[in-house]
Design a protein around this nucleic acid. Structure first.
Lengths: 257, 257
DNA sequence: AATAAACTGTATATGCAATAAACAGTGTAT
DNA sequence: ATACACTGTTTATTGCATATACAGTTTATT
């Protein structure tokens, strides 16, 4: 039926769109894909993506690893499905709100939220532009938030790429930090405070003429409470939004003048 | 000797700083760390990070996998060393040049270059802020490029985080695209052109009210030659630089006015 | 009703991975 | 001369993804 559509999709993508035909012959299925993905996510959330093995997922459901292959053709496809499932979030952008700056902030925060909630999210390799339904849904959300901007489609997509890319980086680093801390590393291990003393001996002024003074002052490895990682990223986000605003103003001038 | 320094470092980091004591007893070593890291990088460059196994690296040097453990305590440490070695690049910023915008662009390009040259680079998980020597060297480079800016240390580090984070995202996507294409996927597979027809059926206006028209027009999966992935990222970079410029102007006004 | 086809979950097996442990040989310090 | 600290290797363990063959189950066809 939908065969003509799915032809080029990787199997995981086809499944995410529900394009897999099922037949009625044979015994009733005891599992379903959502259940498997959910179980995999539960394990990844608790113990990291490296704990997600076919055996582990199947066992947690009371089945053998091979049973999963009746539903999902490979582990890579399972990862695609996990990634897409993690993107299934409510629209962070208020209906009808046309404050694009605030809307992009909301989108940024929602994206970061995915990384925080699912620290493994960034560990799944990207093998194409987003084409699974919930990934596209997020793009749809943010497109709604910049609907009114006088930009062409390409410009809009570039801006979305800019923000989501920035959020990806920020999200990865934040969740890595969380993970490291949860894994028993002292908070300072990630921020670098634990290394501060060692670095002060190693970052010499001859080899690192510019960095030396920052390390000596302890700025580089500083993590006082007023200035956590998240704050640094919000600083960057505001610079990005300013840059977009500037671009909008320039375009307006071209029209008006 | 240097024992007091390295105490808290992960072994790979300690090795990268050359903090490992060696003794003269026993047979002459037939390998050295640089050689091992070089061999691992050669394999990763050619066949991807997943082809890098201890056995594979050792074999390519004519040794057994276990021999590597006499030099590097674990594969994770080998990855840290590979990551740092990939960052050993010449300073992209011209001596004495004070055009911060151009300098940040150069830094961005050099960073992207690392991802292009070593497509596996982004696949290595970050477990702390950069503390290995070549990673720090890159930070030193870019700090030199914004030396003259009237910003405090924290602000400078935030800006570097902003740019390098953006470059990371851009680099990952670009190298993923390269990889996918090299791996035999048609160029269109990554850009989405191959999926365009299918998506036009799936991205319906009721489920994706904002994205629908873009996909229908083919913009989302468009990859005409005038507009490749790299261009999209340069657009974003200029927005970021504009945003930084705006921040500088605001600071100046505070001083002047 | 009988049977073939298409499916189900499982048991078994393969090959590759990281790495621990035990080993035999090799230099150096005593 | 010999004990020690090291070298690279052999062997073994454990966990992984997944191919293949199986026995049982449901439906479609005869």
């Amino acid at each position: 039926m939908d065969d003509h559509i799915k032809i080029n999709f990787p199997p995981g993508v086809a499944i995410s769109w529900g394009l897999e035909k099922q037949s009625n012959r044979g015994p009733k299925r005891e599992l379903n894909i959502d259940q498997i993905v959910e179980a995999a996510i539960a394990i990844a959330d608790k113990e990291g993506i490296s704990s997600v093995s076919m055996n582990r997922v199947a066992s947690s459901l009371g089945f053998t690893s091979m049973s999963l292959y009746r539903y999902i053709p490979s582990k890579d496809d399972l990862l695609i499905l996990m990634q897409d499932a993690a993107c299934d979030i409510p629209n962070p952008i208020p209906e009808g709100d046309t404050d694009w700056r605030e809307n992009l902030r909301k989108f940024y925060e929602a994206t970061i939220g995915v990384y925080i909630k699912h620290p493994w999210f960034g560990d799944i390799p990207i093998t194409s532009i987003p084409i699974t339904p919930n990934n596209l849904q997020m793009i749809d959300y943010v497109l709604g938030g910049i609907r009114e901007l006088p930009l062409n489609d390409h410009e809009k997509m570039s801006i979305i790429l800019l923000i989501s890319n920035y959020a990806r980086g920020a999200g990865e680093i934040m969740s890595d930090a969380n993970q490291a801390i949860q894994a028993g590393a002292s908070p300072g291990t990630f921020s670098g405070v634990d290394f501060s003393n060692a670095l002060q001996e190693l970052v010499t002024s001859d080899r690192f003429p510019n960095l030396h003074s920052l390390v000596a002052k302890g700025v580089y490895t500083d993590d006082n409470k007023d200035n956590d990682v998240g704050d640094d990223f919000e600083f960057g986000l505001e610079r990005i939004l300013d840059g977009i605003e500037r671009y909008l103003k320039l375009k307006e001038q071209k029209f008006d003048g």
